[in-house]
């Protein structure tokens, strides 16, 4: 059992921010450590219920795989889609270099 509000450390916050691709400032990491601790205390109440042997629900309605007929149909207009991107080149999205790749 953790101390109240101490379920997550600052190092964990920094690690999770990396996973979530968020370049947090130091101030943001500090306040998130505090706030997430309090929120997780409340969330951890779910463990008060006996859920042994209870199947998890991922979705409220029973889902079966839905397939449409295999018939070609028009999709979004490429130029219209690309017109909304921050950077494009030769009909494609343009991004900075991938990590480790030579420029």
């Amino acid at each position: 059992m953790s101390e109240p509000g101490a379920r997550i450390t600052r190092a964990e916050v920094t690690h999770v921010a990396r996973l979530a691709r968020l370049a947090l400032t130091d101030d943001e990491a500090d306040s998130l450590t505090r706030e997430l601790g309090v929120i997780l205390d409340n969330a951890a109440r779910v463990s008060a219920l006996d859920t042994a042997g209870v199947p998890p629900t991922a979705h409220p309605v029973p889902l079966v795989n839905v397939l449409r007929a295999d018939v070609p149909k028009p999709c979004l207009d490429r130029d219209e889609v690309l017109s909304q991107a921050p950077a494009v080149e030769d009909g494609r999205f343009l991004v900075p270099r991938i990590l480790g790749e030579e420029p």
């Binding site: 691709r21 968020l22 370049a23 943001e28 991107a85 921050p86 999205f93 900075p96 270099r97 991938i98």
Partner: peptide, 21 residues
């Protein structure tokens, strides 16, 4: 990459993280 805001970064990962923050 595909829509909205981009904040530049040296690599894709830095661009992603700076844009999102």
């Amino acid at each position: 990459v595909r829509y909205g805001l981009r904040v530049d970064g040296e690599t894709v990962e830095q661009m992603n993280a700076a844009t999102r923050d």
